[in-house]
Design a protein around this nucleic acid. Sequence first.
DNA 1: GATATAGGATTGTTGGACATCTGGCATCCC
DNA 2: GGGATGCCAGATGTCCAACAATCCTATATC
Lengths: 246, 246
Amino acid sequence: MTLIAPARSSTLSAQIARQLEQLITSGEWPVGKRIPAESELVAQLGLSRNTVREALRSLVHTGMLEARVGDGTYVSALSELQTPFVRRVNRARLEDAIELRAVLERAAAGLAARRRDARQAAQLRKLVAALRAASRAKDQAAFVVADSALHETILACARNALLAEVYDHLGRALKLSTSPQLWDQALAAKQIGLHEALIDAIAKGDAVRAETAATSLVDSLQAALLPAAHKAKAAKERRLAQRFGT
Amino acid sequence: MTLIAPARSSTLSAQIARQLEQLITSGEWPVGKRIPAESELVAQLGLSRNTVREALRSLVHTGMLEARVGDGTYVSALSELQTPFVRRVNRARLEDAIELRAVLERAAAGLAARRRDARQAAQLRKLVAALRAASRAKDQAAFVVADSALHETILACARNALLAEVYDHLGRALKLSTSPQLWDQALAAKQIGLHEALIDAIAKGDAVRAETAATSLVDSLQAALLPAAHKAKAAKERRLAQRFGT
DNA sequence: GATATAGGATTGTTGGACATCTGGCATCCC
DNA sequence: GGGATGCCAGATGTCCAACAATCCTATATC
């Protein structure tokens, strides 16, 4: 790690914040890492503690860092977009968030059908087979793993990094609606067929059919999970309201 | 056993930041307003200047506030999502950003067709008429105004606040690609027909036709403007690189 | 009337001090 | 030996006071 204190074009704390951000986004400071203490950063940069602290507070506020009193400061997110986006989604109507996710899912399916290569198509077929096996074995953990790997691969096939990131953040915010406790054997069995239709369309390059398959897949999931998701969201908000006394 | 919540649930500066954020998002401090000076906030809150400053720096970093030395601090954005999102989009591949926008545009058209009411349909017809009039009169300013009003109304018809906000931020980041200097009389005339087809489909509640119309509208715009947009983005990046000496 | 200048107001930066909390080590007791 | 207890170094949180750099404005000057 090398940090330099450059000449004055913007505020010093903003420049330090940018450098720290780059260390995180570049992966040099991975998520979970405990970063050097304020005193060490002060010594390395030759700045005052308040200036360094203001930079750190900025990243703490955006959610890239997490400071623990008496312990240290840890990297908690790779993207500055993640935390604001998750916060915004949590304030949104649940239907709106789910609908946006469905829109992106459908678009990703269509793009994936147009852009997947042979290797990716083979991997998709392998993953959907794993999904079916997990469902037959009633192995919930394996089912969830295969399902998320499948969707991740579809996003990779779509070759749109921005869309993939937005979808990912959205999924993170909505993960309460697909939490394991809501998993249902009958639902999983039903989804297998829809997944197979989707993957088949993508593999064959049929964008229109891929989009309709993605839509019906999302719809079936939504119909099954929406009531529980609403309950979970309401409970979460009650917890927060209680904690903050509003 | 009774457990009492700890007195300090979060840091003071974080709480102040939350309060300031709420003043902004609630509209009590509108965009452009000069907020009280640090010294006033210190006096009002009864906290030290450093604590208040850390809260302010957090909001400055997220882009909700802008501080000017010797002048004051001003509200510069209503949403904490806007600035990170715009930054992220500016780092993304231009094609990815445009593609995501097209996806949202298409989805909004479909949703609008399903959800518009009679009053909105009438307003859409009025706006598309204004668009045609502006095109005939070769009034560029009026054309741009009517065009943006039209798209704003479509988003309102779609009744998905989250989708609308993401679309809005995306459009803000991409505004270089629809900047007035790229406006072209022939292109505008061609777009009139596509707009009319789109609005007609929405007004009639034909979601499928609305989506295809939106797609062809975006495609035609994209084909016409992509080269210029690439140039504009490259120029912007050169400017930034020069300023920061990287 | 236009320009130059001085002053006040505001944010940026520094250095130091103390408070509060945490994790880990040493100690003590069983 | 193992577990509970107490202590302490180190980390972040908060406060204080001062100076620097910059901008806006009112005043003075020509």
